[in-house]
Nucleic acid binder design. Structure first.
Lengths: 155, 155
DNA sequence: GGATTTTGCTTGTTCCAACAACCTTTGTTG
DNA sequence: CAACAAAGGTTGTTGGAACAAGCAAAATCC
């Protein structure tokens, strides 16, 4: 990088501490998400698909309505239908229409889905350990506290 | 929501404090990004396009090579070319091939792009103030510190 | 100073994200 | 109990994200 470019980058000020925090948060989240992508890509899963599978595993054999999946996801997803479509096409989940309320479609994780998850668990558990090893327990608690309050603050 | 569903959600444990921090970070980042989307959508800009325009405004009248834009962006972007394509098609930026190095394409922000940015500056400045108002100055500094260390830790 | 490598960008392609409109089933209300 | 509203999913469509392959100009290397 040239000297000029370096100076420009150093000189770029943040408009406010809050804007700095906002950009910092996006930058860090993207950084970590890239690492998650790297783990999931060889398995043909996106982070969202992985998220759905984990939710369904936690829900047990009864399955969950599509709408409830959307509510529980880490990131907002406006189209659970086609997200589940792809998982179904891959043979990882099954769909059955509820008998008690025929509007509802229950989604359940299948055997193949559970096996796939089992193989991801270990590397996925190691990922945050590796990326967040620099922070101590107290700092992690503080970070979680701040993040939760950030989400709750705007109401 | 049913009683059972509520209990399930309460009962979901995190595998580790680090995994909790990871998910929390993604959740919060998505939450804030949604707010940014809400501001930019009426103007037909994505957060990334907005990011490029800000970078180009900061770069001045000389413009920047495409590759340097990619380096400076908040989130990792593997395809600056078509990102700039769309901005050029919208008449917001111009491309000129560098004379000194004919491989390089310099991108400059145009009059229309500057005017568009000027209109966004105010609501965009208010956004983090509104979303992060719950945190004090010291807490913001702490948050920024933790986020920066998170990014630096994995090397 | 010609072959090779490297750099900077473009193009091809496939899949996913986002918003809206629509359809079916259930609940509600006078 | 018929008309209407609401809930739950699906489909249509457009545009963006991601990875790879390719092309032209510049740097490197005997």
């Amino acid at each position: 990088m040239s000297k000029l470019q370096h100076e420009l980058r150093q000189a770029r000020p943040f408009a406010s501490p809050m804007m700095e925090a906002y950009l910092n948060l996006q930058r860090t989240a993207d950084h970590l998400r890239t690492e998650e992508l790297r783990i999931l890509r060889p398995l043909g899963l996106t982070p969202q698909q992985y998220n759905v599978l984990r939710i369904l595993r936690g829900a047990g054999t009864d399955g969950l309505p599509s709408a409830e999946i959307g509510v529980r996801m880490v990131t907002r997803v406006p189209d659970v239908t086609r997200l589940v479509d792809r998982l179904e096409a891959a043979g990882l989940v099954e769909r059955t229409r509820s008998e008690s309320d025929r509007r509802v479609v229950l989604v359940r994780i299948g055997k193949k889905g559970l096996e796939l998850l089992a193989g991801i668990d270990e590397p996925m558990k190691r990922m945050p350990d590796k990326l967040m090893g620099g922070l101590g327990a107290a700092e992690l608690r503080k970070l979680n506290d701040l993040l939760v309050r950030l989400r709750g603050a705007q109401d």
